[in-house]
Amino acid sequence: MVDTPDIIRIEAAHFSYGERPILTDLNLTIRRGEIVAIMGGSGGGKTTLLGLIGGRLKPSSGRVMVEDQNVPTLSKSALYQLRRRIGMLFQFGALFTDLPVFDNVAFPYREQTDLPEDAIRALVLMKLEAVGLRGAAHLMPSELSGGMARRVALARAVALDPAIMLYDEPFTGLDPISVGIIGRLIKRLNTALGMTSVIVTHDLNETLRLADRVIVLSAGRVYCDLVPDQIRASSDPFIRQFADGLPDGPVPFHYPASDYVQDLVQS
């Protein structure tokens, strides 16, 4: 297998939920070792994109190449083989609520390896130490704050040292301190473990501090593909609306509707 620089390559991918198209003719590549942020309006297909990369969703057409394998065509066992090299942090962590923190992080080792229990213990404590929560190993997920739960989930996601990390809105619902902590952890893990990171996020400030590249999606395709400095300097109205948080602009405030006055008169 040739070690190509493009670890993820999406070619002409189409995806729709029923009648509603989400992705139309999406093309993008992500290189090994990068941290790439995916931004765009809500319902713009960002989370769908992670679903395609992880093989949880299948495009209606097009190719999704991850480590030179076309994900939609993989068999279940080949897909599971690939997923051992992909870590994913879900929006709210998705910790197993019936297991304590320690067992949550130990889960991938117990399921995927034949390591003895004392080796698993050492590895789990190491991962928890990396996210600063070794002391919380005995707690149940319900006893954790949102930020702590996200960090435990991060420790669990990187347990098997994946080549690719997918983050689904890792900053949503967190206080600014936790946002900073998670952001720094993402950066540190990316360099320390030599990973490639794809982050779907709304948090522009943290993203610009963190990412090597920002891909903005709009109407189911790549709107622009820029480095953080270009975003800061951009005068594009769409990007400005995002960067400055303007309520109305190219992304309309109103959901498409018939004429307001006419609607009132009719009723």
Binding site: G54, R56, Y80, Q81, R83, R84, I86, G87, M88, F90, A94, L95, F96, T97, F107, P108, E111, Q112, A153, R156
Partner: peptide, 9 residues
């Protein structure tokens, strides 16, 4: 949680 499990192969 089920999706997370699925993503952990």
């Amino acid at each position: 949680q089920l999706a997370a499990m699925d993503m952990m192969a």
